[in-house]
Design a binder for these strands. Structure first.
Lengths: 204, 204
DNA sequence: TAGATTGTTAATCGATTAACAATC
DNA sequence: TAGATTGTTAATCGATTAACAATC
Protein backbone atom coordinates (compact mmCIF):
# COMPACT_ATOMS: atom_id res chain seq x y z
CA UNK A 1 0.00 0.00 0.00
CA UNK A 2 1.38 3.40 -0.97
CA UNK A 3 0.85 5.97 1.71
CA UNK A 4 0.44 9.68 1.05
CA UNK A 5 -1.81 9.55 -1.93
CA UNK A 6 -4.14 12.57 -1.89
CA UNK A 7 -7.58 11.63 -0.52
CA UNK A 8 -9.34 12.52 -3.76
CA UNK A 9 -6.95 10.38 -5.75
CA UNK A 10 -7.74 7.40 -3.54
CA UNK A 11 -11.45 7.90 -4.11
CA UNK A 12 -10.92 8.18 -7.86
CA UNK A 13 -8.69 5.10 -8.00
CA UNK A 14 -11.43 3.13 -6.32
CA UNK A 15 -13.80 4.41 -8.97
CA UNK A 16 -11.45 3.65 -11.86
CA UNK A 17 -11.22 0.10 -10.66
CA UNK A 18 -14.95 -0.40 -10.48
CA UNK A 19 -15.39 0.95 -13.99
CA UNK A 20 -12.53 -1.14 -15.31
CA UNK A 21 -13.96 -4.28 -13.74
CA UNK A 22 -17.21 -3.65 -15.60
CA UNK A 23 -15.51 -3.53 -19.01
CA UNK A 24 -16.00 -6.60 -21.17
CA UNK A 25 -14.11 -7.75 -24.25
CA UNK A 26 -11.39 -5.14 -24.26
CA UNK A 27 -7.80 -5.38 -23.03
CA UNK A 28 -6.67 -1.76 -23.21
CA UNK A 29 -8.16 1.63 -22.46
CA UNK A 30 -6.97 5.17 -23.22
CA UNK A 31 -6.87 7.94 -20.66
CA UNK A 32 -9.59 9.89 -22.44
CA UNK A 33 -11.88 6.87 -22.49
CA UNK A 34 -11.52 6.25 -18.78
CA UNK A 35 -11.88 9.98 -18.19
CA UNK A 36 -15.13 9.97 -20.12
CA UNK A 37 -16.56 7.18 -17.96
CA UNK A 38 -15.78 9.25 -14.88
CA UNK A 39 -16.66 12.63 -16.37
CA UNK A 40 -13.27 14.04 -15.53
CA UNK A 41 -10.32 15.44 -17.45
CA UNK A 42 -7.99 12.97 -19.24
CA UNK A 43 -4.96 14.68 -17.73
CA UNK A 44 -6.41 13.85 -14.37
CA UNK A 45 -6.45 10.17 -15.15
CA UNK A 46 -2.88 10.23 -16.38
CA UNK A 47 -1.77 12.12 -13.34
CA UNK A 48 -3.46 9.71 -10.93
CA UNK A 49 -1.89 6.73 -12.67
CA UNK A 50 1.47 8.46 -12.57
CA UNK A 51 1.08 8.77 -8.80
CA UNK A 52 0.70 5.01 -8.46
CA UNK A 53 3.58 4.43 -10.88
CA UNK A 54 1.55 2.83 -13.64
CA UNK A 55 2.66 3.20 -17.25
CA UNK A 56 0.67 2.81 -20.41
CA UNK A 57 1.54 2.19 -24.01
CA UNK A 58 1.66 5.26 -26.22
CA UNK A 59 -0.41 3.49 -28.84
CA UNK A 60 -2.55 0.94 -27.05
CA UNK A 61 -3.19 2.86 -23.85
CA UNK A 62 -3.39 1.18 -20.44
CA UNK A 63 -3.64 -2.56 -19.92
CA UNK A 64 -6.88 -3.00 -18.02
CA UNK A 65 -6.01 -6.13 -16.07
CA UNK A 66 -2.63 -4.82 -15.00
CA UNK A 67 -4.10 -1.48 -14.04
CA UNK A 68 -6.72 -3.14 -11.84
CA UNK A 69 -3.96 -5.07 -10.13
CA UNK A 70 -1.82 -1.98 -9.66
CA UNK A 71 -4.68 -0.01 -8.14
CA UNK A 72 -5.24 -2.88 -5.72
CA UNK A 73 -1.59 -2.83 -4.71
CA UNK A 74 -1.87 0.86 -3.95
CA UNK A 75 -5.15 1.25 -2.16
CA UNK A 76 -6.00 -2.12 -0.68
CA UNK A 77 -5.02 -3.08 2.78
CA UNK A 78 -3.12 -6.33 3.19
CA UNK A 79 -5.51 -7.55 5.85
CA UNK A 80 -9.23 -7.18 5.88
CA UNK A 81 -10.56 -4.42 8.03
CA UNK A 82 -13.04 -5.54 10.63
CA UNK A 83 -16.10 -3.34 10.68
CA UNK A 84 -18.86 -2.84 13.24
CA UNK A 85 -22.26 -1.35 12.46
CA UNK A 86 -23.93 0.69 15.14
CA UNK A 87 -27.60 1.00 14.31
CA UNK A 88 -29.45 -1.63 12.35
CA UNK A 89 -32.45 0.26 11.04
CA UNK A 90 -33.26 0.83 7.38
CA UNK A 91 -29.96 2.59 6.82
CA UNK A 92 -28.01 -0.20 8.43
CA UNK A 93 -29.78 -2.71 6.19
CA UNK A 94 -29.09 -0.65 3.07
CA UNK A 95 -25.42 -0.50 4.00
CA UNK A 96 -25.31 -4.20 4.67
CA UNK A 97 -26.36 -4.90 1.08
CA UNK A 98 -23.83 -2.37 -0.20
CA UNK A 99 -21.10 -4.17 1.74
CA UNK A 100 -22.01 -7.58 0.44
CA UNK A 101 -21.99 -6.22 -3.03
CA UNK A 102 -18.44 -6.53 -4.15
CA UNK A 103 -16.35 -4.89 -1.53
CA UNK A 104 -13.98 -7.51 -0.24
CA UNK A 105 -11.57 -5.61 1.96
CA UNK A 106 -14.06 -4.78 4.68
CA UNK A 107 -15.91 -7.42 6.60
CA UNK A 108 -18.73 -6.83 9.03
CA UNK A 109 -17.68 -8.43 12.27
CA UNK A 110 -20.40 -7.23 14.63
CA UNK A 111 -23.52 -5.10 14.80
CA UNK A 112 -25.13 -3.24 17.67
CA UNK A 113 -28.69 -2.31 18.39
CA UNK A 114 -29.78 0.58 20.56
CA UNK A 115 -33.12 -0.77 21.65
CA UNK A 116 -33.61 -3.42 24.28
CA UNK A 117 -35.32 -5.87 21.95
CA UNK A 118 -33.75 -9.29 22.15
CA UNK A 119 -32.44 -9.48 18.58
CA UNK A 120 -29.43 -11.74 18.31
CA UNK A 121 -28.78 -11.68 14.59
CA UNK A 122 -28.63 -9.10 11.84
CA UNK A 123 -28.71 -11.14 8.65
CA UNK A 124 -25.75 -13.47 9.20
CA UNK A 125 -23.95 -11.19 11.67
CA UNK A 126 -24.11 -11.32 15.42
CA UNK A 127 -26.01 -8.41 16.98
CA UNK A 128 -25.22 -7.09 20.43
CA UNK A 129 -26.88 -4.64 22.72
CA UNK A 130 -25.15 -1.26 22.72
CA UNK A 131 -24.20 -1.71 26.37
CA UNK A 132 -21.65 -4.28 25.25
CA UNK A 133 -20.06 -1.86 22.77
CA UNK A 134 -16.64 -1.29 24.24
CA UNK A 135 -16.13 -4.86 25.30
CA UNK A 136 -17.07 -6.31 21.90
CA UNK A 137 -15.07 -3.75 19.88
CA UNK A 138 -11.98 -4.91 21.75
CA UNK A 139 -12.76 -8.59 21.68
CA UNK A 140 -13.56 -8.64 17.97
CA UNK A 141 -10.56 -6.49 16.98
CA UNK A 142 -12.74 -3.94 15.19
CA UNK A 143 -10.90 -1.30 13.11
CA UNK A 144 -13.75 0.68 11.61
CA UNK A 145 -17.15 1.68 12.90
CA UNK A 146 -20.14 2.68 10.81
CA UNK A 147 -22.51 5.03 12.64
CA UNK A 148 -26.00 4.67 11.26
CA UNK A 149 -28.10 5.81 14.17
CA UNK A 150 -30.11 8.79 15.43
CA UNK A 151 -28.14 12.00 15.93
CA UNK A 152 -29.08 12.14 19.55
CA UNK A 153 -26.98 9.12 20.46
CA UNK A 154 -23.95 9.98 18.38
CA UNK A 155 -21.95 11.94 20.92
CA UNK A 156 -21.93 9.40 23.75
CA UNK A 157 -21.27 6.50 21.49
CA UNK A 158 -18.40 8.29 19.77
CA UNK A 159 -16.74 8.67 23.15
CA UNK A 160 -16.88 4.94 23.72
CA UNK A 161 -15.60 4.28 20.21
CA UNK A 162 -12.62 6.55 20.69
CA UNK A 163 -11.92 4.93 24.05
CA UNK A 164 -11.83 1.56 22.30
CA UNK A 165 -9.10 2.97 20.02
CA UNK A 166 -11.05 2.69 16.81
CA UNK A 167 -9.22 4.59 14.07
CA UNK A 168 -11.86 4.94 11.35
CA UNK A 169 -15.47 6.11 11.54
CA UNK A 170 -17.99 6.36 8.74
CA UNK A 171 -20.48 8.85 10.09
CA UNK A 172 -24.04 8.87 8.76
CA UNK A 173 -25.39 11.13 11.46
CA UNK A 174 -25.39 14.87 10.89
CA UNK A 175 -23.41 15.45 14.06
CA UNK A 176 -19.80 16.57 13.72
CA UNK A 177 -17.84 14.14 15.81
CA UNK A 178 -15.20 15.38 18.18
CA UNK A 179 -12.35 12.91 17.87
CA UNK A 180 -8.56 12.94 18.29
CA UNK A 181 -6.38 13.77 15.29
CA UNK A 182 -5.42 10.21 14.53
CA UNK A 183 -9.01 9.04 14.04
CA UNK A 184 -10.14 9.33 10.44
CA UNK A 185 -13.79 10.35 10.10
CA UNK A 186 -15.63 10.24 6.81
CA UNK A 187 -18.81 12.27 7.05
CA UNK A 188 -21.83 11.43 5.08
CA UNK A 189 -24.26 14.16 5.83
CA UNK A 190 -27.43 13.61 3.83
CA UNK A 191 -29.26 16.76 4.83
CA UNK A 192 -26.33 18.96 3.84
CA UNK A 193 -26.23 17.30 0.42
CA UNK A 194 -29.96 17.69 -0.01
CA UNK A 195 -29.88 21.39 0.78
CA UNK A 196 -26.98 21.88 -1.59
CA UNK A 197 -28.90 20.07 -4.29
CA UNK A 198 -31.95 22.16 -3.56
CA UNK A 199 -29.88 25.35 -3.84
CA UNK A 200 -28.24 24.49 -7.12
CA UNK A 201 -31.39 23.16 -8.71
CA UNK A 202 -32.97 26.32 -9.97
CA UNK A 203 -36.45 27.02 -8.70
CA UNK A 204 -39.24 27.41 -11.18
CA UNK B 1 -31.95 33.41 -2.66
CA UNK B 2 -28.43 34.56 -3.43
CA UNK B 3 -26.98 32.84 -6.42
CA UNK B 4 -23.28 32.19 -6.94
CA UNK B 5 -22.35 31.09 -3.48
CA UNK B 6 -19.56 28.50 -3.67
CA UNK B 7 -20.94 24.95 -3.31
CA UNK B 8 -18.96 24.28 -0.16
CA UNK B 9 -20.24 27.46 1.42
CA UNK B 10 -23.83 26.38 0.76
CA UNK B 11 -23.18 23.05 2.43
CA UNK B 12 -21.59 24.75 5.41
CA UNK B 13 -24.39 27.29 5.75
CA UNK B 14 -26.85 24.43 5.92
CA UNK B 15 -24.74 22.94 8.68
CA UNK B 16 -24.39 26.19 10.60
CA UNK B 17 -28.15 26.48 10.62
CA UNK B 18 -28.69 23.01 11.98
CA UNK B 19 -26.20 23.59 14.75
CA UNK B 20 -27.67 26.98 15.57
CA UNK B 21 -31.16 25.55 15.75
CA UNK B 22 -29.94 23.06 18.32
CA UNK B 23 -28.60 25.77 20.65
CA UNK B 24 -30.71 26.46 23.73
CA UNK B 25 -30.69 29.41 26.10
CA UNK B 26 -28.20 31.61 24.26
CA UNK B 27 -28.84 34.57 21.98
CA UNK B 28 -25.39 35.20 20.54
CA UNK B 29 -22.49 33.10 19.33
CA UNK B 30 -18.91 33.98 18.39
CA UNK B 31 -17.23 32.86 15.21
CA UNK B 32 -14.80 30.65 17.09
CA UNK B 33 -17.63 28.93 18.97
CA UNK B 34 -19.52 28.11 15.80
CA UNK B 35 -16.24 27.07 14.18
CA UNK B 36 -15.59 24.69 17.06
CA UNK B 37 -18.96 23.00 16.60
CA UNK B 38 -18.12 22.42 12.95
CA UNK B 39 -14.44 21.64 13.46
CA UNK B 40 -13.39 24.34 11.03
CA UNK B 41 -11.39 27.54 11.18
CA UNK B 42 -13.06 30.65 12.73
CA UNK B 43 -11.96 32.72 9.74
CA UNK B 44 -13.94 30.36 7.61
CA UNK B 45 -17.11 31.08 9.52
CA UNK B 46 -16.59 34.83 9.29
CA UNK B 47 -15.89 34.60 5.59
CA UNK B 48 -19.00 32.53 4.92
CA UNK B 49 -21.16 34.98 6.85
CA UNK B 50 -19.56 37.85 4.98
CA UNK B 51 -20.61 36.19 1.73
CA UNK B 52 -24.24 36.22 2.80
CA UNK B 53 -23.90 39.78 4.07
CA UNK B 54 -24.43 39.03 7.73
CA UNK B 55 -22.81 41.23 10.35
CA UNK B 56 -22.08 40.48 13.97
CA UNK B 57 -21.37 42.59 16.98
CA UNK B 58 -17.72 43.03 17.87
CA UNK B 59 -18.44 42.20 21.48
CA UNK B 60 -21.47 39.98 21.52
CA UNK B 61 -20.82 38.04 18.33
CA UNK B 62 -23.60 36.93 15.97
CA UNK B 63 -27.29 37.02 16.86
CA UNK B 64 -28.39 33.42 16.52
CA UNK B 65 -32.01 34.02 15.54
CA UNK B 66 -31.14 36.62 12.93
CA UNK B 67 -28.37 34.48 11.53
CA UNK B 68 -30.72 31.52 11.10
CA UNK B 69 -33.12 33.78 9.23
CA UNK B 70 -30.37 35.22 7.05
CA UNK B 71 -29.09 31.76 6.11
CA UNK B 72 -32.64 30.82 5.13
CA UNK B 73 -32.91 33.89 2.92
CA UNK B 74 -29.74 32.88 1.16
CA UNK B 75 -30.05 29.16 0.65
CA UNK B 76 -33.72 28.34 0.78
CA UNK B 77 -35.85 28.23 -2.28
CA UNK B 78 -39.01 30.30 -2.21
CA UNK B 79 -41.11 27.34 -3.28
CA UNK B 80 -40.80 23.81 -2.09
CA UNK B 81 -38.98 21.48 -4.42
CA UNK B 82 -40.98 18.46 -5.42
CA UNK B 83 -38.96 15.28 -5.10
CA UNK B 84 -39.43 11.79 -6.52
CA UNK B 85 -37.79 8.67 -5.12
CA UNK B 86 -36.85 5.96 -7.54
CA UNK B 87 -36.28 2.78 -5.61
CA UNK B 88 -38.05 2.03 -2.36
CA UNK B 89 -35.83 -0.60 -0.78
CA UNK B 90 -34.01 -0.21 2.50
CA UNK B 91 -32.13 2.81 1.24
CA UNK B 92 -35.33 4.48 0.07
CA UNK B 93 -36.87 3.90 3.47
CA UNK B 94 -33.84 5.29 5.28
CA UNK B 95 -33.99 8.41 3.11
CA UNK B 96 -37.70 8.78 3.71
CA UNK B 97 -37.07 9.06 7.44
CA UNK B 98 -34.24 11.51 6.82
CA UNK B 99 -36.58 13.70 4.76
CA UNK B 100 -39.30 13.71 7.36
CA UNK B 101 -36.79 14.68 9.93
CA UNK B 102 -36.67 18.42 9.76
CA UNK B 103 -36.06 19.27 6.15
CA UNK B 104 -38.91 21.45 5.07
CA UNK B 105 -37.92 22.70 1.63
CA UNK B 106 -38.17 19.38 -0.11
CA UNK B 107 -41.33 17.34 -0.25
CA UNK B 108 -41.66 13.84 -1.57
CA UNK B 109 -44.31 13.96 -4.26
CA UNK B 110 -44.05 10.47 -5.74
CA UNK B 111 -42.14 7.21 -5.48
CA UNK B 112 -41.42 4.52 -8.04
CA UNK B 113 -40.81 0.82 -7.69
CA UNK B 114 -38.90 -1.29 -10.16
CA UNK B 115 -40.57 -4.61 -9.47
CA UNK B 116 -43.98 -5.58 -10.70
CA UNK B 117 -45.45 -6.07 -7.25
CA UNK B 118 -48.70 -4.22 -6.85
CA UNK B 119 -47.60 -1.80 -4.15
CA UNK B 120 -49.62 1.40 -4.23
CA UNK B 121 -48.22 3.23 -1.25
CA UNK B 122 -44.83 3.95 0.25
CA UNK B 123 -45.61 5.20 3.74
CA UNK B 124 -47.96 8.08 2.96
CA UNK B 125 -46.70 8.66 -0.58
CA UNK B 126 -48.16 7.27 -3.76
CA UNK B 127 -46.02 4.61 -5.41
CA UNK B 128 -46.00 4.03 -9.16
CA UNK B 129 -44.53 1.40 -11.37
CA UNK B 130 -41.36 2.58 -13.10
CA UNK B 131 -43.08 2.30 -16.47
CA UNK B 132 -45.07 5.42 -15.55
CA UNK B 133 -41.92 7.38 -14.75
CA UNK B 134 -41.89 10.03 -17.43
CA UNK B 135 -45.58 10.63 -17.37
CA UNK B 136 -45.74 11.07 -13.59
CA UNK B 137 -42.62 13.26 -13.38
CA UNK B 138 -44.35 15.68 -15.73
CA UNK B 139 -47.79 15.45 -14.17
CA UNK B 140 -46.50 15.96 -10.64
CA UNK B 141 -44.11 18.77 -11.55
CA UNK B 142 -41.11 17.01 -10.06
CA UNK B 143 -37.89 19.05 -9.76
CA UNK B 144 -35.54 16.64 -8.08
CA UNK B 145 -35.08 12.90 -8.34
CA UNK B 146 -33.41 10.66 -5.78
CA UNK B 147 -31.89 7.54 -7.31
CA UNK B 148 -31.76 4.77 -4.71
CA UNK B 149 -31.74 1.69 -6.90
CA UNK B 150 -29.43 -1.00 -8.29
CA UNK B 151 -26.58 0.26 -10.49
CA UNK B 152 -27.74 -1.81 -13.37
CA UNK B 153 -30.87 0.25 -13.90
CA UNK B 154 -29.32 3.65 -13.44
CA UNK B 155 -28.38 4.41 -17.01
CA UNK B 156 -31.75 3.85 -18.67
CA UNK B 157 -33.66 5.59 -15.97
CA UNK B 158 -31.35 8.59 -16.08
CA UNK B 159 -32.19 8.98 -19.73
CA UNK B 160 -35.88 9.15 -18.96
CA UNK B 161 -35.24 11.60 -16.15
CA UNK B 162 -33.26 13.93 -18.37
CA UNK B 163 -35.97 13.68 -21.02
CA UNK B 164 -38.48 14.78 -18.42
CA UNK B 165 -36.35 17.90 -17.85
CA UNK B 166 -35.47 17.18 -14.25
CA UNK B 167 -32.71 19.56 -13.13
CA UNK B 168 -31.44 17.92 -9.94
CA UNK B 169 -30.44 14.34 -9.20
CA UNK B 170 -29.23 12.87 -5.95
CA UNK B 171 -27.40 9.77 -7.06
CA UNK B 172 -26.94 6.88 -4.63
CA UNK B 173 -25.81 4.42 -7.25
CA UNK B 174 -22.12 4.11 -8.00
CA UNK B 175 -22.68 4.84 -11.68
CA UNK B 176 -21.49 8.18 -13.03
CA UNK B 177 -24.48 9.66 -14.75
CA UNK B 178 -24.14 11.16 -18.18
CA UNK B 179 -26.32 14.27 -18.11
CA UNK B 180 -26.41 17.66 -19.83
CA UNK B 181 -24.56 20.57 -18.27
CA UNK B 182 -27.61 22.20 -16.76
CA UNK B 183 -28.54 19.16 -14.66
CA UNK B 184 -27.00 19.26 -11.21
CA UNK B 185 -25.95 15.83 -9.96
CA UNK B 186 -24.89 15.21 -6.39
CA UNK B 187 -23.11 11.88 -6.14
CA UNK B 188 -23.21 9.83 -3.05
CA UNK B 189 -20.96 6.94 -3.75
CA UNK B 190 -20.78 4.71 -0.68
CA UNK B 191 -18.22 2.26 -1.96
CA UNK B 192 -15.79 5.03 -2.84
CA UNK B 193 -16.12 6.46 0.65
CA UNK B 194 -15.62 3.06 2.21
CA UNK B 195 -12.46 2.39 0.26
CA UNK B 196 -11.14 5.82 1.14
CA UNK B 197 -11.87 5.15 4.79
CA UNK B 198 -10.18 1.79 4.54
CA UNK B 199 -7.10 3.38 2.96
CA UNK B 200 -6.72 6.12 5.55
CA UNK B 201 -7.40 3.86 8.50
CA UNK B 202 -4.00 2.38 9.13
CA UNK B 203 -3.83 -1.36 9.02
CA UNK B 204 -2.58 -3.16 12.06
C1' DT C 1 -8.42 52.26 28.02
C1' DA C 2 -6.94 47.39 27.01
C1' DG C 3 -8.35 43.48 25.01
C1' DA C 4 -11.12 40.81 22.27
C1' DT C 5 -13.74 40.10 18.09
C1' DT C 6 -15.32 41.24 13.60
C1' DG C 7 -14.87 42.02 8.51
C1' DT C 8 -11.93 41.70 4.76
C1' DT C 9 -7.80 41.29 2.08
C1' DA C 10 -3.79 38.78 1.03
C1' DA C 11 -1.21 34.47 1.37
C1' DT C 12 -1.23 29.70 1.32
C1' DC C 13 -2.48 25.30 0.13
C1' DG C 14 -4.21 21.65 -2.60
C1' DA C 15 -6.59 19.99 -6.47
C1' DT C 16 -7.49 20.37 -11.36
C1' DT C 17 -6.26 21.38 -15.97
C1' DA C 18 -3.27 22.98 -19.79
C1' DA C 19 0.70 22.38 -22.27
C1' DC C 20 4.08 19.98 -24.51
C1' DA C 21 8.31 17.10 -25.14
C1' DA C 22 9.03 12.26 -25.71
C1' DT C 23 7.55 8.21 -27.81
C1' DC C 24 6.20 4.84 -31.16
C1' DT D 1 6.65 9.34 -41.47
C1' DA D 2 2.46 11.79 -39.47
C1' DG D 3 -0.47 11.64 -35.91
C1' DA D 4 -1.98 10.29 -31.62
C1' DT D 5 -1.13 9.30 -26.83
C1' DT D 6 1.55 9.12 -22.74
C1' DG D 7 4.10 11.12 -18.72
C1' DT D 8 5.18 15.13 -16.39
C1' DT D 9 5.81 19.92 -15.36
C1' DA D 10 3.87 24.35 -15.02
C1' DA D 11 -0.24 27.23 -14.81
C1' DT D 12 -4.68 27.88 -13.16
C1' DC D 13 -8.37 27.69 -10.24
C1' DG D 14 -10.82 27.45 -6.00
C1' DA D 15 -11.00 26.74 -1.23
C1' DT D 16 -8.91 27.50 3.24
C1' DT D 17 -6.32 30.06 6.48
C1' DA D 18 -3.46 33.90 8.21
C1' DA D 19 -3.11 38.51 9.15
C1' DC D 20 -4.53 42.74 10.67
C1' DA D 21 -6.99 47.29 10.64
C1' DA D 22 -11.28 48.79 12.45
C1' DT D 23 -14.34 48.68 16.14
C1' DC D 24 -16.33 49.02 20.65
Amino acid sequence: MTKNLPPNTVERLSNYRRRLLAIQGKDYIHSHQLAHLMKINPAHVRRDLMLIGFSGDVHKGYNIKKLIAQIGKNIDCENKHRVAFIGIGDLGRALYHEFNNGHSKLEIAATFRLSEEPIQQFFDIKCYNISKLKQVLKKENIDIVVLALPNINAKDITKTIVDAEIKGILNFTSVHLDVPEDVFVENYDMIGKLEKLSYFTSCR
